[in-house]
Amino acid sequence: MNIFRLTGDLSHLAAIIILLLKIWKSRSCAGISGKSQILFAMVFTTRYLDLLTAYISLYNTSMKIIYIGCSYATVYLIYAKFKATYDGNHDTFRVEFLVVPVGGLSFLVNHDFSPLEILWTFSIYLEAVAILPQLFMISKTGEAETITTHYLFFLGLYRALYLINWVWRFYFEGFFDMIAIVAGVVQTILYCDFFYLYVTKVLKGKKLSLPA
């Protein structure tokens, strides 16, 4: 464990909690893409099946359980409890255009052709593009609530910190996972446009609205 990975995990946890609290307290999921949240629930489910087979540490196990629990709770709030506030007309990204290619790629490019490894690979590739429906929805509505931009900032920051963690681990441990690194670079690049708007607008107290 290093400071970059720990900060990354805490940033990820902060993002998940911010979103859950935003929906719960405002009793509304306006502006939130339910499709992205379903994709994140799929990411955690397919990646953390090793909860049943391997024990790494209390930290590892508890964070995985928290991530899975919060992501399913968020999906439940969006599609069940606060369904009336779900903005389905703007959450129209065709997720099958993400899941099918990612599913195919995870069979073609992986470290080991075993079920657990292919599901892990699928979750890595899926996580790289899971935010697209949310970014697409913001481009369609033309704006985002400030709390939603903070959620996106911490979510994007977490994988950027993981990139530094992988540099650190390569340098100090000789460890690297090319699949995770390439997917992590793609994932972080997808946030660049948002990061620019977040820094130039939200951090200056303005509302995030598109076109910039």
Binding site: A54, K64, Y67, A180
Partner: peptide
Amino acid sequence: SDSQKKKDEL
């Protein structure tokens, strides 16, 4: 390959 190192990351 060394990426098979136990998956200890979240």
